[in-house]
Amino acid sequence: MNNRKKYGVLFWSTFQLSACTFGGGFVIVPLMRKKFVSELGWIGEEEMMDLIAIAQSSPGAIAVNAAVMLGYRVAGVLGALVCVAGTVLPPMGIISAVSVFYAQFRESPLVDAAMSGMLVGVAAVITDVVITMICGVCKQRRILPVAVMLAAFAAVHMLHISMIAVIPACGVIGACDTLCRARRRGVGK
């Protein structure tokens, strides 16, 4: 397959995936795997797992990160840019359309009722997600992650410290913890 054709396939695949995935990054990842591992065979099964791990560990939207990784792997920097464009254009188009009608849309009492109802649904979904995530942290049976979680919550929610200060601080704590444990393991040998 020549390069120009490759860019076309990359763009169109990511465009379709992005346009049809409701529910965020964790939904698009399995679909990407199906497309690029099973259908196109451009990437190996295990390599795909690593690409997803990198996409999830990096800042930003998982769908965008996964697209960058895929494009970069298949066709270099230009491939990454093509995939990002494919991923970003569908939501941009849809939200642009929504925002044009937003004012009229919002004034309708019926829409208002639907939106208030849906907000309750969204709140329930987020509560569910948060509880599942907290359980995940508690299951590690280590004190540090739980302490970091409580301290970060207090800092942001009660003391109103900027998240942009809290996030890097927690990253540093995690890195130090990993290094210390690696060293202790080294001494123990």
Binding site: A123, I126, V130, P145, F153, V156, C170, G171, G174, T178
Partner: peptide
């Protein structure tokens, strides 16, 4: 992975706050 292990609990706290 090390950095991520520190970030994960913080991220949960922040999502909880916005939630």
């Amino acid at each position: 992975q090390g950095i991520l292990s520190g970030l994960r609990p913080a991220v949960i706290a922040m999502i909880a706050s916005a939630g």
